[in-house]
């Protein structure tokens, strides 16, 4: 099921073709196809272990995720051979679900790194954003060290605002976040993906992993994919698919696939 957005853009911002990936010899992605157009917000559903996080980490270039075959085409270039930092500088950004704590590297240090390498946002606007996220007091803390689930999300989103990537991947932005914070998380995602302006004028695109779909109450997605066993099993309207998953569970997807 394709949507009308495709008419607005001829070439996808990112396109995954026949991608197969293994980690330590174990296959985690199997002949996967997916694309995201500029201006689009795509949601990725799937049960635990279906390969959602593996896909995001592969796109980001984490070396443990070995590309066996297939292509990752970003702005017309196959980036499968590029290093993580090259991809970051090309405009790819990842909101980690479980980022490591880095002792001695303070949040403000990593934000400075993001700004230097991303290059658009000004320091004042980052402080403003930190203020919006109620996160100013965390600037001198070692990044992620002793952060709660909600604090990690805010830290990751703040880093994305500083990095200003064109293609932003969100790994379960709604997990472990309470009701007050999920509203905030939604707002920032909308800001990152330029949801406030007309789609055909947006320069950004996003891919959001959600297990339970809560984030969709705050962020409008254009299309959805469902992943099962390392491949895309179906795609379509996010609301319809979420409704199906909520009523029938991923079991329904398995049956549908058959």
């Amino acid at each position: 099921m394709n949507t009308s957005q495709e008419k607005c853009r001829d070439v996808p911002l990112i396109e995954i073709r026949h991608l197969s990936v293994s980690v330590e010899g174990k296959r985690v992605l199997n002949d996967l196809d997916l694309y995201v157009m500029q201006g689009e917000t795509i949601v990725l559903f799937g049960p635990n272990g279906s390969g959602k996080t593996s896909l995001l980490k592969t796109i980001m270039g984490i070396p443990q995720y070995r590309v066996e075959s297939g292509n990752i085409i970003y702005r017309g270039e196959d980036i499968a051979e590029r290093s993580i930092d090259e991809r970051a500088r090309l405009g790819l950004g990842l909101v980690f679900q479980n980022p490591p704590a880095v002792r001695g590297v303070r949040l403000k240090d990593i934000l400075r790194i993001c700004m230097e390498k991303g290059g658009v946002f000004k320091e004042e606007s980052i402080i403003e954003s930190a203020d919006k996220l109620n996160f100013v007091d965390f600037m001198d803390r070692d990044v992620n060290l002793g952060f709660s689930g909600g604090e990690i999300k805010r830290s990751e989103l703040l880093q994305m605002l500083a990095q200003n990537p064109a293609f932003v991947m969100f790994d379960e932005p709604d997990s472990g976040v309470d009701l007050v914070n999920i509203n905030l998380v939604g707002k920032v995602i909308n800001e990152l993906l330029e949801k406030g302006i007309r789609e055909d004028r947006r320069t950004k695109a996003g891919l959001i992993i959600t297990h339970a779909g809560h984030i969709l109450d705050y962020v409008n997605a254009d299309r959805a994919y469902v992943m099962l066993n390392g491949s895309v099993s179906c795609s379509g309207n996010p609301g319809d698919i979420l409704e199906d998953i909520r009523t029938k569970g991923y079991e329904g997807c398995v049956r549908c696939r058959r």
Binding site: I84, D85, G93, F96, V102, G104, C114, Q159, Q163
Partner: peptide, 23 residues
């Protein structure tokens, strides 16, 4: 940790140096 900082745009060497400095 190196990969995390690389995802923010630092090269592998820069990320290592930043972590050592922080350490």
């Amino acid at each position: 940790e190196i990969q995390y900082l690389m995802a923010r745009g630092l090269t592998s060497d820069e990320a290592t140096a930043a972590i050592v400095r922080g350490f």
